[in-house]
């Protein structure tokens, strides 16, 4: 198990390197650092202020290899970026100049408070509904359920949010429509509506996917065997099919679990929750490239952690698979 984990981590290194090269290509080759500086400093920036800005952040170094005599060849943007990534140094924001590691740490808590409950509630609801649709399979109810889930996933996510905010929060005044506070029950009041909106937004596609997975299981031989030995259809579904279907579900779900830290862009922005999603939206609006770049690294690291965790979970729940 331990040696497997080590190998898994080593496997992630070249991929992370690829991500680094990809983002480097985007942010330093496709786009020139001067353009970036001009974007941040505004139209009135003089050549001096731009040069100063670039120098302060080390963006005025040669791009790949430093050919200047007397300087080490690795004193370039590429190698600096590489070194920063290797030491988990996320750098500072291009706009506010704040240390990104602190910024991300601060944003992670509100994001997790939002996405974690939404994930668990959403998962349980979707599995329950999918199982019910499988229970009534090939009836009108099942067909209607499938149609409703397709309809739910065909609505743009903003519509749910706009509706939730305008109608439920503002018109009926059930929930606060905007804002966030980190203090016990008040936090709960602020989170209830956003969390339920995330649940509703994901419900359609999740129910549809899980239903397909469970339907696949229903066709397996072990189901027929269980039916033949007289297992009731409720027990068959809730014990046999659920347990086996979970193996497929876990591989789908666990990979995305670490990414919950990144929060939800739209929801956080609409409701003014100071999480990582909101941070990214404001980074987009202010052309804060360092923050976007750091988010890309962080996102891919989290995703790779999720993939490794998926493999481990897979081995834990499925005795047929051994990690060696």
């Amino acid at each position: 198990m331990f040696s497997y984990l080590i190998r898994r981590i080593l496997y992630a290194v070249p991929i992370l390197l690829g991500v680094m090269v990809l983002t480097f290509f985007l942010f330093f080759v496709v786009q020139k650092p001067e353009t970036m500086a001009r974007n941040v400093l505004g139209k009135r920036a003089t050549p001096q202020t731009i040069a100063e800005y670039l120098h302060k952040r080390g963006y005025d170094k040669p791009r790949f290899i430093n050919r200047e005599p007397g300087q080490p060849f690795y004193d370039s943007i590429f190698f600096t970026q590489l070194q920063k990534l290797a030491t988990f140094d996320l750098g500072v924001s291009d706009v506010t100049g704040r240390d990104l590691k602190t910024v991300f740490k601060e944003g992670a808590i509100p994001s997790l408070l939002l996405t974690l409950p939404a994930f668990f509630v959403g998962f349980i609801m979707a599995v329950g509904l999918a199982l019910y649709l499988v229970f009534v399979r090939e009836t009108r109810l099942d067909a209607a359920g499938a149609l409703v889930s397709i309809a739910l996933m065909s609505v743009p996510p903003m519509i749910y949010i706009i509706f939730g905010q305008a109608v439920i929060a503002l018109t009926f005044n059930y929930f606060p429509a905007f804002g966030f506070e980190l203090s016990g029950l008040t936090t709960l009041k602020f989170l209830l509506l956003p969390v339920s909106l995330i649940v509703v937004m994901g419900l359609g596609s999740d129910v549809r996917l899980y239903r397909a997975i469970f339907l696949e299981e229903i066709g397996q031989d072990y189901v027929r065997t269980a039916q033949a030995k007289g297992v009731s259809s409720t027990r068959l579904l809730l014990v046999h099919v659920l347990k086996n279907g979970m193996i497929a579900l876990i591989t789908l779900v666990v990979a995305h679990l670490p990414l919950l830290v990144m929060g939800s862009l739209l929801i956080e922005n609409f409701f003014g929750i100071p999480g990582l999603g909101n941070l990214l939206v404001s980074a987009i609006q202010t052309s804060d490239f360092a923050t976007v770049r750091a988010s890309v690294y962080l996102g891919s690291i989290l995703y790779l952690i999720g993939l490794a965790a998926t493999d481990v979970c897979y081995a834990l729940v499925d005795p047929r698979i051994r990690l060696s």
């Binding site: 991500v19 990809l22 983002t23 862009l265 890309v296 996102g299 891919s300």
Partner: peptide, 12 residues
């Protein structure tokens, strides 16, 4: 490409 969350890559 898949290891970068889609929305982040799009935005970038």
């Amino acid at each position: 490409v898949a290891s970068v969350p889609e929305i982040l890559l799009l935005v970038a």
